[in-house]
């Protein structure tokens, strides 16, 4: 039976409702915990997270995928309490984002070691707990894919195949290289979500990925011109991207998220967007761009429901 692992146990796909596929609560480069300047005031961060998740829930959101991977601020007990008190289904992820952010302990791992680690987190539990990750979330930094990142991607693919979990990737500049790895490792592309697709805009690439069966996620919704991040852009442009994807018949391959960070540890201000804005401001923006209600519903509910849950066939292998 397909299911999604949340912090509080399994969830039936029919209960997922509207999903934000790529968000962060705490996010910091590995090692922030050694730097007193980066320590968050944890009670205040909890309050802010609580408010943002409740806001999301009151606007109709039900599932929140926390994509900070291992060592980057994924804080289990914090997340468990958050999901328990808000009722939003928070999903933890396993995986590493980028070479530089992989902690020293894991730098000697090969692809199979990573696969074993991710599989353990998806099927047994994270660390020494029994709390399971729900999705695999890996990525590469700017400037291509390093050797370690290649091993991380390969490990992620092998874990995805072994467990039936979905794979979300961050690092759209290496999309072709990623596709090559997925094809070499024989991963079914419908199990893959390419995140960060609104960081480097390329509609042809998105259509190509969708044509191969993969999903593309526009997951920086709300990151508007007030930000000086190089990939900030008006939400109107994102809405147009979505409208064009839907118009060319690729509405089944689009996902959305705000990519918000409640606390950005040691890196100055938080990401000023928040997950509620996805439903409050961006859905009307999509309507304005001419995307039909059913298509919006498919993007926010149907596509995540189809892709994100852990899927196994009756024999126990990945479907």
């Amino acid at each position: 039976m397909p299911h999604l692992n949340t912090l509080l146990g399994t969830l039936h796909p029919e209960e997922m409702g509207m999903v934000a596929v790529r968000e962060h609560i705490l996010w910091g480069s590995s090692g922030w915990e050694f730097d007193p300047r980066a320590w968050p005031r944890i009670a205040k961060v909890f309050e802010k997270s609580f408010n943002e998740l409740l806001d999301f829930k009151l606007l109709g959101g039900q599932t929140f995928v926390e994509c900070s991977g291992i060592g980057a601020g994924r804080d289990l007990d914090f997340l468990v309490k958050l999901t328990a008190v808000t009722g939003v289904h928070v999903v933890a992820s396993t995986g590493f984002w980028s070479d530089a952010h992989t902690p020293a302990h894991f730098r000697r791992y090969g692809a199979d070691d990573f696969a074993r680690l991710f599989t353990h987190e998806l099927t047994v539990g994270i660390g020494h707990t029994r709390i399971k990750a729900g999705v695999i979330s890996v990525g590469n930094g700017a400037g291509g894919m390093s050797e370690l990142e290649t091993a991380i991607y390969r490990g992620a693919v092998r874990a995805a195949k072994a467990t039936g979990a979905a794979l979300i990737t961050h690092g759209i500049d290496t999309a072709r290289r990623q596709i090559k790895i997925f094809q070499e490792e024989l991963l079914a592309l419908p199990r893959v979500v390419f995140g960060d697709c609104d960081r480097i805009i390329d509609l042809e690439r998105d259509r190509w990925l969708a044509g191969l069966g993969a999903c593309v996620a526009y997951d920086n919704v709300g990151l508007e011109a007030w930000s000086d991040l190089p990939y900030a852009m008006p939400d109107q442009w994102r809405a147009e991207l979505v409208a064009q994807m839907v118009a060319s018949g690729h509405g089944e391959s689009v996902m959305l998220s705000a990519g918000s960070k409640v606390a950005n540890l040691g890196r100055g201000g938080a990401h000023l967007s928040n997950v509620g804005n996805l439903l409050r401001y961006f859905v009307p923006e999509l309507e304005k761009a001419g995307v039909a209600q059913e298509a919006i519903r498919a993007i926010l509910v149907g596509n995540p429901k189809r892709v994100l849950p852990i899927q196994r066939d009756s024999a126990g292998g990945a479907a």
Partner: peptide, 14 residues
């Protein structure tokens, strides 16, 4: 760790 390595990385003060 990465936190201490990347000069000015991703930092956007306000």
């Amino acid at each position: 760790p990465a936190h201490f390595c990347l000069i000015g990385y991703f930092y956007r003060g306000h």
